[in-house]
Amino acid sequence: MRNKDLGTAGTGFHDWYWQRISAVFLLFSIPVLMGVLLLTYNGNISFETLNIALTHPISKTLCNLFLFAMLIHIWTGLKVIVEDYVHTTAMRVFVLNVLLVMLAGFAFYMTYHIWAELAYTFNCIPCGGG
C-alpha cells in the first residue's frame, strides 16, 4: 500500500455535482413514471389516455429531459462503482468507455423512440387517436 503523494487531479467535483443535480430532477419525475406504470398495470389507464398523455409535444419534451437526467445519473453512479472496484487504469478506461458508448447509443435510440413513435415506424397499427 506504500505510495507517493501524486498530488491532486482536480477531478471528482463535477461527477459529484451532476449526480446530485440529476438526482433532484429524478426525485420529481421518477415517481410520476412509476405511478403511470402501476396505474397502467392495474388497468386504470386506457390506451387512449396513455397515448394522449405521452405523445403530446410537451410530454415528449419532458420525457426527453427525463431520459437525459436518468442517463447522467446512471453514468455518474456507474462511474463511481467502476472506480471503486476496477483497480487497473487500463481496465477502467476500457470499462468506462464501453459504458459510455452503450449509454450514448441508448440516448440516441430513446430520443428517436420518444419523438418518432416507433409503432408507426414498425407499421404496427394505426394509432388510437388517428
Binding site: 491532486t8 487531479a9 482536480g10 471528482g12 461527477d15 459529484w16 463511481v80 472506480e83
Partner: peptide, 14 residues
C-alpha cells in the same frame, strides 16, 4: 482545498 479536490482522495466517501 486544491489539495483535496480529487475523485480518489476525497470523493470515495459514500
Amino acid at each position: 482545498l486544491d489539495d483535496l479536490e480529487d475523485s480518489f482522495k476525497l470523493y470515495r466517501c459514500h
